[in-house]
Amino acid sequence: MAEAATSLLDARFARGGRDAFVEAYAAHAREVRHWVRRFFSSAFEQEEAVQEVWLTAHRMQSLYDPAKGPLKPWLRALSANRCRELLRAASRRPPVGVPLDDVSDALWLDAPGPDDAVHSAALRVEVARFAAGLPPDEARVLQLCFVEQRSHAEVAKELGIDERRSKYLKQKVLLAASRDERLRALLSESRS
């Protein structure tokens, strides 16, 4: 059933149009983000590269042929190629762990990074510790703004505050977290 839905989406994507592109984006955005992170350690560069990948996918939408294979490997190869081009354009070498050439449609990108699981578990512990030390209103803002991705209007309504206060509290929580020594150490470890 899921496979049929996937191949339907692939065929729609090949026919073109905004709706199909938006659906393909919704289906594969998380994977593209994961693939791009293997090439860039900087969050800013990752964000730039993700935009580049999707804009390239949009430009090349008409060239995708579902008869030659599903959309996911096409996007994976496109992501790997675009990231390599961006690194080349900046005269930089790919990070250690990125093969020089792909012989199998960048299949290696689907595997988790060597320390992903360890860092995720350690981060969860540290974030829980950090959240436990926050005043109740800031802990609630952390949950609503960061975890649930609510807008400031929604957060303001939920907490009975105005939007400016919601923005202020979000900024306060983020700055406090960025200055937390243990969180900071773990983040710099995962960057390197």
């Binding site: 800013f44 540290e126 974030v127 952390l142 960061f146 929580v173 960025s178 960057r191």
Partner: peptide, 28 residues
């Protein structure tokens, strides 16, 4: 500035914001 942005973005990611919303808004 990029290093400072990276620190904030990675902290936000650690707190649970995976950047999906901002990415989608920027793209669409």
């Amino acid at each position: 500035c990029r290093a400072h942005y990276d620190l904030l973005a990675q902290t936000a990611r650690a707190l649970g914001d995976d950047g999906a919303k901002a990415e989608r808004e920027r793209l669409f």
